[in-house]
Amino acid sequence: MKLGHTVKTIAFSLLFVAFTANANEQLDTSKLKQLGVEVLSIKESGMPGVYELSTNQGIVYLSEDGEYLLAGSLYKLTEGGPENKTEQALQSLRKRKVAEHQDEMITYKSSKEKHVITIFTDTTCGYCKRLHNNLGSYLDKGITIQYLAFPRGGLGSQGGRELQQAWCSKDAGEALSSLFNEQSISATTRCENPVGQHYQLGQMLGVTGTPALILPNGRMLAGLRGADAIIAEIEAAQ
């Protein structure tokens, strides 16, 4: 029986891979490319004739003939209520993409670590400053904070320049803390740094403001949240 189950599992996996490859080959995404949309992956949306696309601009939906584009939330109506299929897809995308940028983050590790959250931040954001200046309350509750950059005004803004300075510093964590405390630092912005990539990543993942908190399950919370509220959100999802 175990062998039969294994064979069925392998057969299903091969069928899924074959379908995905076929969808990528046959779906006409040429008009999206003309709009500057880069398609990362394609899969069935659950709606007949419509495909779900992960792109550099988030989750979108495309008709089978490539003529119609849907941008927004897709809901499945179930007996238990509407399910936001777009948010489910975004959570999966956030988890995957955040993991890919793990080595580029500025991290403040809790010695009592129980949870790790990722925050898109901007040094010119008032709520980001309040969050960072209360960093100890998060660390004391076992929450490790890891930052990605999201200069709301773009790379040429004050926030963009300061974030690049922080990531270019020898001690990035100390530099970022100084900037949040409105202390100037002497670091250059002319180094290889990931701030531009982080900014594009945030746009892809649906970030529109800061702070934007990404929980371990990929759910995003917008705005300032206290340590207890964050822990409650994490535990509710487990």
Rank of each mutant, 00 (worst) to 15 (best):
Y108A: 07
L70R: 01
T78I: 08
T107P: 13
T55P: 05
A18C: 12
K97S: 13
Q88G: 12
E104H: 13
A222R: 15
Q26R: 14
K97G: 09
N56G: 08
P151H: 07
G196I: 05
P211M: 00
C128S: 02
V60Y: 01
E174P: 01
S30E: 14
G36P: 09
F120S: 01
L35C: 06
E79A: 14
L176Q: 02
T189H: 03
Q197N: 15
Q165S: 03
M105A: 12
L69F: 01
E25M: 15
E87V: 03
S137C: 00
E162P: 02
G36K: 11
L15P: 07
K129N: 01
G142A: 14
V60I: 13
C168K: 01
T78G: 10
A212Y: 00
P216N: 08
Q203L: 11
I231P: 11
A89P: 05
R152M: 06
A172L: 04
V7D: 11
D228V: 09
T78Q: 09
T6M: 13
Y147E: 00
D228Q: 12
Y199T: 08
D28E: 10
S54C: 07
Q88C: 01
P151I: 03
T124R: 13
F16K: 15
N217T: 13
C168W: 00
K43I: 07
K95H: 14
E38K: 13
L53Q: 04
E67S: 14
M47K: 10
V195P: 02
K8Q: 15
Y127F: 06
G58H: 04
G173I: 09
G196W: 09
N56K: 11
F16L: 15
L163Q: 05
L40M: 14
N133E: 02
G209P: 03
I185V: 05
Y68L: 14
I42C: 10
E38I: 08
H198A: 07
T124I: 07
L215G: 10
S110Y: 10
R219C: 05
I230L: 13
S178K: 15
K31L: 13
Q183S: 06
A229T: 13
F120G: 00
R96L: 12
G4M: 11
T118W: 02
N84E: 05
L135F: 01
V207W: 05
Q88M: 09
M47W: 07
L62C: 06
V195C: 04
C125F: 04
N84P: 04
G154H: 07
Q164T: 04
S63W: 04
I59S: 06
R161V: 11
Q102C: 09
T107M: 11
V195S: 03
S177M: 05
I42R: 13
Q238W: 10
M220C: 03
A222H: 12
F16Y: 14
A166T: 01
G80V: 06
G154Q: 07
I119H: 00
R161H: 09
V7S: 09
T188H: 00
V116L: 08
E182N: 09
F19S: 14
F16M: 15
E162S: 02
A229W: 11
I59N: 06
T55C: 07
T86C: 05
